[in-house]
Design a protein around this nucleic acid. Structure first.
Length: 549
RNA sequence: GCGCCCAUAGCCCAACUGGACAGAGCGCUUGACUACGGAUCAAGAGGUUGGGGGUUCAAAUCCUCCUGGGCGCGCCA
């Protein structure tokens, strides 16, 4: 509908003012939120005012007088120069009909953005050194939702978890486990200074004891640690995977950092950067001249002892993502990693990927308040609230909706004591209730013998009915905005609004009235459309749409 | 010191990326079930968008300075 009006307006303007619509004129055509401004408003007159040297209000009046269409009831100039368009009921009925006919595909609710393009969403990527805590939950939900939304917008999406299974953290993990293992045999081994103190470490040690008994002591320390490392990563990743499944977070692949070492990917990528002439040696180390590309300083890629820094495999990983044919990369990171964006962007530019899209979504940290006292979560010290706990406490639906309520870059504090309470006034129930209510209506309709299959939608003439349909028409734009700006929280807000429109409608009219079967059939069809949109939206957020609650 | 992010109603947050009178929820005040689910609805109070300056027909949004928070500035990952 918007597209249609846009071209009508454009044509009118071109006839009125030949040559006025240049590339720079990017006018908006938007649904209004206030009926007094009509159904759709355009700001083109104000955009043209400068180049035409004319009062925008006058331009708007001329445009309004010029445009005509069977769907348009009237067009008028308003405010400082808006063109407000009032539509007849017909386009609303036709649109609703198209939604109902689309069935499960729900094509009228989906924007067409991806058109088969390939997108890779990398998220969570927590180090495999402990269970996921409530901080990770946010990234998991945001990433999963972005992936779902991109899919709905037509992208082919893959979801990856990057596993940092190389480097010092892993050495630390192995040493921590080995120390606990030794303690099981009454052998005191000094606990590593930066070791991991969580309960789960001792559990892993017990597992190793069960499988290997005391045989780790009869091998070299290196092999013993290697077993601890492997077992540790395996167990922890298993645990993480279990949590994510419980949270309905889909992960297609766990991408191992170690595989980049073993596959020679890092050397290959560094060679490319060398060829591009942007690396140099100094003090025995290999540096990336990132400052030449806008970074604040140069970065070390290979340390003087010959090992790689964290950055090198990360560059190789992202280089590889583009080589695998993805058009769009979305990384969901904790905001404390924001300093890495620039250097990674610089590297990707050097590697010739500057034309492609690489977005980093920074998810702000989740603070923790316990009884008014601030807590700092630390996996290493074993201080954290696990995501498992939260899910069990509030349920997956409430937790997911709650995490998605705020824009990713806003920081919020999680009050442990309020977690359960938070779930009872979580808006997710408001939205789910609307869906359940419609299911109830449908049952009622069947009992009362109200036919809903071939509704006469032209009977929907109430102002409220119009505004419900209008709300439904907006969903496409909302999903598009979510996908475009990586802001899935918009969908949560939208669904709350849509549910509100329905609840209000429900109270204003008898919907399943056996004494007015034809009208009721039309109203029930409208409700069916609402339910379809609610379910679609909730599922995009990983939340169920129950038929009863 | 340098860099990134944030500041909106009593609280927690939105605001279609520059558009019309800044909007929801919670909390507060008042009302609504012998119609289809009250986990709901209807109404009210509540704002100098942290502060100053600037750009624009139009600023919560862009630029600049100030104040106050968060985070990052390793040959750690």
């Amino acid at each position: 509908m918007k597209e249609r009006l846009r071209s009508i307006i454009k044509t009118a303007v071109e006839e009125l003012y030949p040559g006025a619509v240049t590339e720079e004129i990017r006018f908006s055509v938007e649904y209004t939120d206030n009926p007094q401004f009509g159904d759709i408003a355009a700001n083109i007159a104000m955009q043209l005012a400068k180049s035409l040297r004319k009062n925008p209000k006058v331009i708007a009046e001329e445009i309004a007088a010029k445009i005509s269409d069977p769907y348009i009831k009237k067009a008028e100039a308003a405010g400082t120069g808006f063109v407000n368009i009032f539509l007849s009921d017909t386009p609303f009925h036709e649109w609703l009909s198209s939604l109902l006919n689309a069935g499960e595909s729900r094509a009228p609710l989906r924007p067409v953005l991806g058109a088969g393009k390939k997108a890779l969403v990398e998220f969570v990527s927590a180090n495999p050194t402990g269970p996921l805590h409530i901080g990770h939950g946010r990234g998991a939900v945001v990433g999963d939702n972005i992936a779902n939304i991109l899919e709905a917008a037509g992208y082919k999406v893959k979801r990856e978890y990057y596993v940092n299974d190389a480097g010092n953290q892993m050495t630390n993990l192995a040493a921590s486990i080995f120390s606990r293992y030794s303690a099981l045999f009454d052998r005191q081994l000094q606990f590593p200074q930066d070791g991991y103190h969580g309960e789960y470490i001792a559990e892993i040690a017990k597992d190793i004891k069960r499988e290997y008994d005391d045989s780790l002591f009869s091998m070299t320390e290196a092999s013993a640690l290697e077993i601890c490392r492997k077992e540790g990563i395996k167990t922890i990743l298993n645990c993480i995977d279990g949590t994510l499944k419980l949270f309905k977070v889909k992960v297609d692949d766990y991408f191992s950092e170690t595989s980049l070492y073993e596959g020679g990917n890092i050397d290959r990528t560094l060679k490319k950067m060398e060829t591009a002439g942007c690396v140099y040696e100094q003090d025995g180390a290999l540096w990336f001249a990132s400052s030449r590309f806008g970074d604040t300083e140069d970065r070390v890629l290979k340390k003087s002892d010959g090992s790689y820094t964290y950055l090198a495999p990360d560059i190789a990983y992202h280089d590889g993502k583009f080589d695998r044919g993805y058009d769009l990369l979305v990384d969901v990171w904790g905001s404390d990693h924001h300093g890495y964006i620039k250097r990674l962007e610089c590297a990707l530019e050097v590697l010739g990927h500057n034309g492609k899209k690489f977005d980093v979504v920074l998810v702000q940290m989740v603070g923790l308040v316990n009884g008014g006292e601030r807590m700092v979560m630390s996996t290493r010290k074993g201080q954290f609230i696990t995501l498992d706990w939260l899910i069990n406490e509030t349920g997956s639906d409430a937790a997911r909706f709650f995490y998605n309520m705020r824009s990713p870059d806003s920081q919020f504090e999680f009050d442990v004591e309020l977690a359960k309470q938070e779930s009872t006034d979580n808006p997710v129930y408001y939205v789910q209730y609307a869906h359940a209510r419609i299911s109830g209506l449908m049952e009622k309709a069947e009992i009362k013998g109200i036919p809903t299959d071939y509704p006469n939608l032209s009977l929907l003439t109430e102002e409220k009915e119009r505004s419900v349909i209008k709300k439904l028409m907006e969903m496409k734009d909302v999903i598009a905005a979510c996908a475009q700006y990586n802001e899935p929280h918009r969908l949560s807000y939208y669904l709350t609004e849509l549910a509100g429109e329905f609840h209000s409608y429900y109270y204003s009219f008898a919907i399943a009235d056996e004494n007015a079967k034809e009208l009721s059939g039309a109203r029930l069809a409208l409700c069916k459309g609402v339910a379809s949109a609610l379910k679609f939206g909730l599922n995009l957020l990983g939340v169920t749409a129950p038929d009863s609650m």
